[in-house]
Amino acid sequence: MNYPVDGSGPFRSMVAVGDSFTEGMCDDLLPDGEYRGWADRVAERLAAEAGGEFRYANLAVRGKLIGQITDEQVEVAAELGGELVTLAGGLNDVLRPGCDAEAVCAALGAAAERLASGSRRLVLFHSTDPSRRMAGSARLLPAILHLKDFVSALGERPGIVVVELFEARCFDDPRLWADDRLHLSPEGHRRVAEAVLQALGLPASFDWRAPLPAVPPPGRLRKLGSDLRWLGKHVGPWIMRRIRGTSSGDGREPKRPELTPYQ
């Protein structure tokens, strides 16, 4: 049996906290209609490492801001008492005009402190770099880099590990992203899951940073058509939600609110 990097044996439980990234948006659908996602993939591997004696909860809900994650998920996750906890949040805040990066970092830091205090290992993330694949996203970089530096500092603390996705050039490939260009595709989720597992010290199953096989770039007309469909199907509804002050996660409950045996 393989063991986590802290040498204290396999994890017996995991609690995932966050937004659509952790909920698993745009991965394959499970029989119950929920998305699978990288966190479910990590739980599957850890359950195998633990010999089947493994419990898993996923409290993440799409569209949540870091303040909502803190208010709605963090204390619940702390009370569940998972040995392994994952926390990803703040990017939904960054996407909004006038983001207060300092306030985002303060909320993330408080959440991390609370979750780290009751777990064996807390996993945080450096997000992918959108500026290399999405036109106009460079304006987000100052806030993203500020958040990245803050997470790096948190990662220096005992019991916290940071998964580095920002420098991974494989995520520049549009095939690792869904049609909305904001959420990971099944292949993207597969690679994030492997990145998490390797960060925890488990043996590599594959090189998650490796580029996909090269394919010819789309022609100009095909790219234009794809951009127009994206604007109409995804960007327009996103703008309308911002105008109305609503979220894609309004009224949604977590897909795995209890720490139950992984099936």
Rank of each mutant, 00 (worst) to 15 (best):
P261C: 13
M1R: 13
L184Q: 13
A43I: 08
P31Y: 07
Q198W: 01
A204L: 01
T128W: 10
L30C: 12
D93G: 03
D32K: 01
K255F: 06
R12D: 08
V74Q: 03
G63H: 03
R229H: 13
L87K: 00
D179S: 12
A47F: 05
R12V: 10
R244H: 11
S248A: 08
D32T: 01
D227A: 12
N2A: 13
I160D: 05
P213D: 03
G136T: 07
A143L: 02
I66A: 12
F150Q: 01
G89K: 03
G109D: 05
H126I: 04
R252P: 00
F21H: 08
E23C: 02
R96W: 06
R121I: 04
L29H: 10
T128K: 03
G159N: 00
A101H: 01
V76W: 12
V196T: 04
R222E: 15
G225W: 02
E167S: 14
E53Y: 09
D19H: 05
K223L: 11
H183N: 13
D28G: 03
S119L: 06
D6T: 02
G67V: 09
A16P: 02
R55T: 15
S205M: 12
R139Q: 14
A106V: 06
R132D: 02
A106I: 05
R36D: 14
L140Y: 14
L221W: 13
S185T: 10
V15E: 10
S8F: 11
G7W: 10
D27F: 11
G90P: 00
A88N: 13
R175H: 02
A214F: 06
R242D: 08
A57G: 05
H146R: 13
A138R: 11
A111G: 11
S117D: 15
H146Q: 14
A116F: 01
K148Q: 09
R133K: 00
G63I: 01
E53D: 14
P158F: 07
G37N: 05
K148D: 13
D40F: 02
R133P: 06
N2D: 15
L59V: 11
P186T: 11
H189I: 07
G24L: 09
E253S: 13
V235Y: 00
Q263G: 15
R55D: 14
N92C: 10
L184H: 15
A48R: 15
N92K: 04
E187V: 08
V215A: 12
E83H: 08
R175E: 08
R121F: 02
I243L: 15
L115R: 04
P257C: 07
D40C: 09
L108E: 01
G236W: 11
F171D: 05
G90E: 07
V162S: 04
V94D: 04
L46N: 04
G155Y: 05
L95M: 12
A214D: 10
L87A: 04
A153R: 14
L87E: 03
A103G: 05
V42W: 00
I243E: 10
E23K: 08
P10K: 03
D250A: 13
T128V: 12
P97C: 08
Y262H: 15
S119E: 02
V161E: 07
E258P: 03
S247V: 00
G219H: 02
G90H: 03
E102G: 12
D172N: 10
S127N: 08
V85T: 14
S119A: 15
C170R: 09
